[in-house]
Amino acid sequence: MLAVKSGKQVEFSPAAMDRAREIISRYPDGKQKSALLPLLHLVQDEFGNWLSVDSMDYIARLLHIQPIEVYEVATFYSMYNMQPVGRFLLEICHTGPCEIRGAEELISTLQNKLLIKVGETSADGMFTLKRVECLAACGYAPMLQCGMHYHEFLDSEEKIDRLLNDLRSKATQNN
């Protein structure tokens, strides 16, 4: 599971460090380990949307805990990516209520359009497809999560095309 070192020096920017300090200060004295999950989100967001061993070791030092305490938590929760992912991670819900409203059709359409299978990243490094369990959007199915946002009612090819095009143009604008 913990296959990859990032090869990069992991250290928070001053802004991220301020955020980290604010998070750590929320808990009673001696209970700073409570900051572990939020800090793993923060380091994942700051360093390429996945958790390298270097990132996890950095958080262990920040919280004065053993690296193994970070690894066991990071590998337990589904939101931490233990391998590099594309620019946009598309997480498609495939649990019951989404399935009966077309989750499998959404997945196969995305696979056909991006020429990748679930678990893979497109050749341009733009998209990674992942199946996830219930995201609490059952009434707005089929749907997927991409970063901050839920994209719901993805029940036609047209809507899926529009989403992919929007994401592609977002990537161009930011570059």
């Binding site: 209970k31 939020p38 989100h41 919280l63 939101m79």
Partner: peptide, 21 residues
Amino acid sequence: QTGAGAYICGEETALLESLEG
């Protein structure tokens, strides 16, 4: 407090464990 993707944390004692990091 932010969870990280685990249905089991809806169980109250698992939630407390998770909240303790």
